[in-house]
Design a protein around this nucleic acid. Sequence first.
DNA 1: TAGACCACTTTGGTCATACCAATCTGGACC
DNA 2: GGTCCAGATTGGTATGACCAAAGTGGTCTA
Lengths: 243, 243
Amino acid sequence: MSRMNSISPIKVPPLMTRSHEIAGVLRDEILRGQFRPSERLPSERDLAARFGASRGAVREALSQIEQLRLIDIQPGGARIKEVNDASIAVLGPLLGMGSKPDADLVDQFLDTFSALARFTATRAIPKLSESQRADLLAQLDSMTHDMNSVESLQPKMRAFLMTLGGIADNLVVRLISNDLQAQFVERMLQLHPRPSLKPELLRELVSDMRLGVESGDGEAVASALDVHFLSMRALVAQALASD
Amino acid sequence: MSRMNSISPIKVPPLMTRSHEIAGVLRDEILRGQFRPSERLPSERDLAARFGASRGAVREALSQIEQLRLIDIQPGGARIKEVNDASIAVLGPLLGMGSKPDADLVDQFLDTFSALARFTATRAIPKLSESQRADLLAQLDSMTHDMNSVESLQPKMRAFLMTLGGIADNLVVRLISNDLQAQFVERMLQLHPRPSLKPELLRELVSDMRLGVESGDGEAVASALDVHFLSMRALVAQALASD
DNA sequence: TAGACCACTTTGGTCATACCAATCTGGACC
DNA sequence: GGTCCAGATTGGTATGACCAAAGTGGTCTA
């Protein structure tokens, strides 16, 4: 808790190397369905020729795609696998493929994220220490101030959920959340105009969660989150529907 | 639904190449905490010398570890990152490190998996078509037969949950489940002696789920699953506690 | 003609070596 | 003591080569 990322003045872009670049292109082609499952991928040598790169770069790219469980590399050839059996790490690329993220997928994400938030809350709240409870209440209080600007509230909401995650102390959920975060969140924040949640709803959310935290009622906090994510989903769906 | 893995007579071992081998060793060393976060990893050349391998093989290994978000490769050196910020793909290795999987981690996994199962049930059951309902009921009925041997029941249980997942039709959860499956399930099935759930509990589980499926009550199915996973967790904890 | 068998080709896995650009390091210099 | 610069180090990439396993196609046999 004490030592956070204190130094991060410059946002380092993911450092696009040739192999990452190639991996991205191939990954997208596979996700786009340009290869049928069990079909053979072009040979490393052919791919190297196509991309004007060395076999080493191509091999590194394929090695990355293999970790996504999109292909199965074997002596004799790499074969495409079902997208449905892939790793969660394909979600990000899947979202960013069209000009606009797929509305269904976004809704599924929010639904799932909501369930994880609920899970976290029900596990964290019952075992709050007094200092943790005070911490959470302070965070909620600080939210009530800038309630009108979603821009300033949203990071506080995330911080609140992160704190809950730390208290719940479940590494599995934590890692899942990491991946979802890595795959979705940033992508979503940029894409569509911020859905403007009505201030009264936000006020109610914070107030409900506050009651739940105070009384140690995890289910109350979870329910408040449920409601919040439901209206969130409605707004996002609406934002994505408008061409 | 129609085309499942019909052909899989020989179980192909994951094909241990040199680069995967190296990646495994380095990954485990990092997970074991042998490097502090932000510390520099030995250079590729040094690692190549250490493993008696070529730089190419080492680079492929590092490329894989990078995808686990365990290291951050940059010109100048690769730096270790926090395990807590890693990808979900580190769970498997994390489990398989000691002679016996960490009891807390296993419990967290089961808790999380339980939550996902509940989520899936609540999303799938309400929108069952009649044929899907019949399918699920048939699966449940087939469970009632070999209720005593956990070995034969367990795969049917998994198939049931998979069917539910297909109906829920949430790609995000599906992919998460894929990863959990890949990371945990196989590892757990081998490790500890099968916890022997009492037949009467299983009978109750199946019966409760049957009622829920028939009446389209997702919450009922979810609750039955909750109970089941709770006793499961108790048994596993007990099995792992016994030296 | 259908099927088994075998040589040839292709493919992935690995190694060695080399060069470049970015980074890092250490010492000279102010 | 701080600044600055040159050399060493490091990752990124390319080329070329060899091996073993898998795929390929043709021949030969029953």
